[in-house]
Write a protein that binds this DNA or RNA. Structure first.
Lengths: 151, 151
DNA sequence: CTGAATGCAAACGGTTTGCACGCCC
DNA sequence: GGGCGTGCAAACCGTTTGCATTCAG
């Protein structure tokens, strides 16, 4: 169980202000929902959660996608593309930590301490390769899901 | 420039036999084309290459997808999902090396020597997490593309 | 007030699926 | 000969785009 920092409305507003983005209802809500989630979320899940949470009129998928894209550009959010799913999941980028083990069933994440990136950077310098993103992802089953699925 | 082992027709036939798969024209061709490629390929590229190479009637996309999926199941091929592209790329799994820097422009790959996985496995054991896949991918621009694109 | 964000619908594009014919073993 | 693989077309589904309206600053 990792400590998860819930991110309330005022924090969401703050983040948006920091990023120089307009503070609309949709954006605040998306950030709040992501902040409350234990796992990365797909656009569709965000829409469902929004409906459940009381955004009376709901949240349009196109709005969710447009904002996730925007957030990703600003570095507020990261994409995850699990091998077994077509769709793209998004996680809040809270502390610049890109290294996780991700449960294929429930998508829970275990952060990994190790960052081998300095070493790799040295190797790439030799090849004159300029890195923009990197990711280290381990997929598998967490202990709860293994029990649940009997494997 | 890494040594790339071309994989000829007879080798492709051998691989299929090993995997217990029927040796059809389509499968042999797909493996050959992947073996000749410097980069991971999308289904569409495989189709185009097949047409260019003389598969007179061409190769249907559905056939390519069905076989890539099959190859992936058998562990002959791995998926790559680059952050900037919708589509799935596939690389031949030749020597069990999952760690690359991948050029976002030309998709050339630089294999990375470092495999931090033993260390990670230790961390995950403590969390009772059973890994099935892992990947370490660095995206960026190779030196040729940087020159070509003037960046 | 003005441009940016959203609601909504329609398009898009990569991938999947269903079915009949043809080929591998 | 029997069943798996392929050609082909049509569906699928996550995501993107266009446009009119609404809202934040």
């Amino acid at each position: 169980m990792s400590e998860r920092e819930y991110l309330g409305r005022e924090m969401a507003l703050h983040i948006l202000k920091e990023a120089g983005l307009r503070r609309t209802e949709a954006r605040v809500l998306i950030l709040e929902l992501m902040g409350e989630s234990e796992t990365p979320l797909e656009a569709r899940q965000i829409q469902d959660l929004a409906a459940a949470k009381g955004m009376s009129e709901g949240l349009w998928l196109s709005t969710v996608y447009r904002n996730l894209e925007l957030f990703a550009e600003k570095g507020l959010v990261q994409e995850v593309k699990p091998p077994e799913s077509e769709s793209i999941f998004y996680r809040l980028e809270v502390h610049g930590h890109n290294h996780y083990a991700i449960c294929e069933n429930c998508h829970m994440e275990i952060p990994l301490d190790l960052c081998p990136f300095e070493e790799i950077e040295r190797q790439l310098q030799a090849a004159d390769f300029v890195p923009t993103h990197h990711r280290l992802e381990v997929f598998g089953l967490c202990s709860a899901c293994r029990r649940r699925l009997n494997r």
